[in-house]
Design a protein around this nucleic acid. Structure first.
Lengths: 147, 147
DNA sequence: TATTGTTATACTCTATAACTATA
DNA sequence: TATAGTTATAGAGTATAACAATA
């Protein structure tokens, strides 16, 4: 949203990362809106596909999304028939989540669209520069995860 | 908030920028909370200091913050006596905004704290790497502003 | 007793539109 | 008629706590 032109803050690299993060998120939203899904929901859908038979609790922990918020997200994915809940046969408190064929199809389209979007987003960088940026980002994220 | 460990999305550089932006914002919040001010309010305060006698409308346009939201922000800055409104003498519809000495002092402390925070945040990068990252970020932001 | 999923509540942030006072 | 600032309202998003069913 906010597009600052100049300020004492803008000089910092941290500030630039914040602005770039916002713009990248905005860009992802624009891409996914064509598939009528929000990034949050798309990420959960991708996590379901990647982790078959995960419970809501396990998904919540994996994605760092609060369980009570996860309820609404799964509700949405069920309503649009992208994923579904089944009661676990071994522990009837749990739900087991699975992606539907509709969900799988949307997931593949979304991943492809995001991949193409990424190429446009970074078009101004050479492939060497893009690689360097990716490496530095990874380095920072790894350092943080070790916190 | 959400800390994804792995997902088809995590492979993209765009995704990493989103995560880094979130973490940098979180870090800035942690630094500024010691001064009892939120990044949003701090940014407006900095803009007031940088642009003496700007009206709320001009500030809104500059920062990309909706005028009705700016009202609450300026209210907050007035209540904490960091800034104040004066009616413009030339156009009595307008307010002229000015930073107080308390605000100036907090601004300086905040900028210093953010500067030190930035050094810690990027401590894992060499000064050459940090410079490279900054250059690439700027390059992307400039490309976008030309959109 | 503890855990999974759910609901209720409240609080923040934001977006839209209508209002007032000035021009 | 248009503009600066304000207020009202409603919609997301999220955080906390309490709850039912099951272990």
């Amino acid at each position: 949203m906010s597009t600052y032109l100049s300020s004492p803050l803008t000089t910092g690299t941290g500030y630039k990362l914040i602005k770039l993060g916002e713009s990248a998120m905005h860009y992802a939203e624009e891409i996914l809106v064509k598939l009528e899904i929000k990034p949050r929901y798309f990420n959960v859908l991708a996590a379901i596909a990647e982790n078959p038979d995960f419970s809501q609790k396990e998904l919540s922990t994996l994605l760092g999304i609060d369980p009570n918020i996860m309820v609404g997200i799964i509700d949405g994915l069920e309503k649009t028939e992208l994923a579904r809940r089944r009661r676990s046969t071994t522990d009837r408190r749990k739900y087991v989540l699975e992606i539907t064929s509709t969900g799988q199809s949307l997931l593949e389209k979304g991943l492809q669209a995001l991949k193409e979007g990424e190429e446009k987003y970074f078009a101004t960088l050479s492939s060497h520069e893009k690689e360097t940026l990716d490496k530095l980002c990874t380095q920072l994220l790894v350092a943080q995860s070790e916190h």
